[in-house]
Design a binder for these strands. Structure first.
Lengths: 141, 141
DNA sequence: CAAAAAGAAGATATGTCTGTCTTTTATTGT
DNA sequence: ACAATAAAAGACAGACATATCTTCTTTTTG
């Protein structure tokens, strides 16, 4: 479903959402250790997300990654699209280039339902709201 | 979502369901040409499906691949699991090894809904029924 | 100014996915 | 029995994803 990069990215963003703030920034090493993700691999993913303004970063001592208020208003779909692209939400499930309601593949209408579900699940709550839920119901990242 | 192998495999099985019978078998070359799939790549996929008795085959002149009555009663989930495995229906969407209702990841219950949808969509109709629908509503494979 | 940490780029290694080719085996029709 | 046909099987190669490690630059803090 999602690439490893994407899974790592989502977990890291949620970790930042729960444990970081503009005052308390987290270094790659710390995040990688806590989530058991290869450090240098995670660094690349976080840099990519920072470049797309989905997470924030600052250099220097006491620098690190964190989420600002605006970051907390993004949703999982933004993260997923930034890392894996939007194919999963848009492309034909059978890989046909020509596939539409006018010229549907055998799974077109079924896939439509699935994609609707994905969109709903990943778009209808913000990262901030998810962080709240993680703390409230003690979910493991 | 699905690997190329799986997409090719599904299309090939549906093609066989529509155009083949125990009397009219189709060679790899013919299927590969019609569906615009690399021939030798498709051969491997079909061999794998034949070994798992999801499609039928016979060698020699006028041999080829086809679906028998039993094959037509299998469903897409069988095909998908034979090629890509059952991960998409079972594994944690965030890649966590420990993820259950007791110790859920932040997406566990959302993913449950998505997986239910996948199961429903791919399990509730047989290959034979799909073939009928393809013919009836003129869907492109 | 020195230390800390991200940013950026590249080398390397491994593994999986995708794709091609060749050889072997089984079946059929003559 | 023989030749043709087609699947079965395995060897191989390139692309891409995943992962690790270096090196260097830039920015910021104390």
């Amino acid at each position: 479903m999602f690439s490893k990069s994407c899974q790592y990215g989502i977990r890291a963003v949620l970790f930042l959402a729960v444990y970081s703030s503009a005052e308390k920034r987290l270094g790659v090493t710390e995040i990688a250790n806590k989530l058991e993700i290869p450090k240098h691999f995670l660094a690349k993913i976080l840099q990519q997300l920072a470049k797309e303004n989905l997470i924030s970063s600052s250099r220097g001592p006491s620098g690190g990654f964190y989420l600002n208020k605006k970051n907390r208003k993004s949703n999982l779909k933004d993260i997923i699209e930034a890392i894996d692209g939007s194919q999963i939400f848009t492309d034909c499930i059978l890989g046909l280039k020509e596939c539409s309601s006018e010229k549907p593949c055998p799974l077109h209408f079924q896939a439509f339902g699935i994609k609707e579900g994905l969109n709903y699940q990943f778009e209808h709550q913000t990262i901030g709201e998810m962080a709240e839920k993680i703390v409230r119901t003690n979910l493991s990242i």
